[in-house]
């Protein structure tokens, strides 16, 4: 693996809320153009890891290198300009805005208005239900539609790295399968890198290339998704099934 292959490198990352650290000495490497699944039980620190990477939580130690550049004191709102998009847990759809406004919001920072418009059209093409509900408010959408909207809004920014937090939460299995298929399609067709936090291990492993397992704020194993899926002993040891 060369330095060019790596889009995100985390070394000794420690972060949390208040005095108690949630993440402790986390090391993580994510290769460009792959889907890396972050797995673990509730309270393992998965969401905090994503929030720290996107700048919402300030690390108390360690280093994050993204695209070859260290991220130190970079404001949250600047990261999307560098190609990092974060779809937070609970989807983060602005309930009071319409579907169209939510999507346009994803590309407002872009100077290339023509390409932003093109990206918006592509998202509508990708998510047909959204195209039919352009004027509906966010709170009027179903769970699956809200997830599409949150994903679509992130894609309008044409990110290089997508941080995706629990996209399957509260969704029907059929919708989860569609979302996982979409992630695979985006990786294969655009080279998008995805850091996928999931409690739904089977879904995550069905699409991921790499997998890391977290427990109590630490990464306890990092391996290929295939190995974790196929090696029963390993799965039992780290995921309990």
């Amino acid at each position: 693996m060369t330095a060019d292959d790596v889009i995100l490198q985390v070394r000794g990352l420690t972060a949390g809320y208040g005095a108690a650290p949630v993440l402790q000495e986390v090391d993580l490497t994510v290769r460009a153009g792959t889907i890396a699944a972050v797995l673990g039980a509730n309270g393992a620190g998965k969401t905090t890891l994503l929030r720290t990477l996107s700048g919402l939580v300030r690390p108390s130690g360690g280093e994050i290198v993204y695209g070859g550049q260290p991220l130190r004191d970079v404001p949250v709102e600047q990261l999307v300009r560098r190609g990092m998009a974060h779809v937070p847990e609970g989807r983060g759809v602005v309930a009071e805005l319409t579907v169209d406004e939510n999507l346009r919001l994803g590309g407002l920072w872009r100077r290339d208005r023509e390409d932003a418009g093109k990206a918006l059209a592509e998202v509508y093409e990708l998510f047909e239900p959204l195209a039919q509900r352009r004027r509906s408010a966010g709170h009027q959408l179903s769970g699956g539609e809200r997830q599409m909207l949150a994903l679509g809004r992130a894609l309008v920014a044409r990110p290089k790295l997508l941080l995706l937090d629990e996209p399957s939460l509260g969704l029907a299995p059929r919708v989860i399968a569609q979302i996982m298929a979409l992630l695979r399609h985006l990786r294969d067709s655009t080279g998008l890198t995805v850091l996928l936090v999931e409690q739904n291990v089977r879904s995550a492993l069905s699409v991921a290339d790499e997998a890391v397992v977290m427990s109590l704020g630490r990464i306890v194993t990092a391996t290929s998704a295939d190995r974790l899926r196929d090696d029963e002993e390993l799965r039992h040891a780290y995921l309990g099934f």
């Binding site: 996107s54 919402l56 949250v76 709102e77 600047q78 990261l79 999307v80 300009r81 998009a85 974060h86 937070p88 983060g92 602005v94 309930a95 009071e96 805005l97 406004e101 346009r104 919001l105 994803g106 407002l108 920072w109 809004r153 920014a157």
Partner: peptide
């Protein structure tokens, strides 16, 4: 206007707006 959209988004969902590049 896009400024108005940014202002509304910032008021309703400041954290999400920051993630979307809005100077909240």
């Amino acid at each position: 206007t896009s400024v108005g959209l940014r202002m509304r988004a910032s008021a309703f969902a400041p954290e999400v707006s920051r993630l979307l590049g809005v100077n909240v």
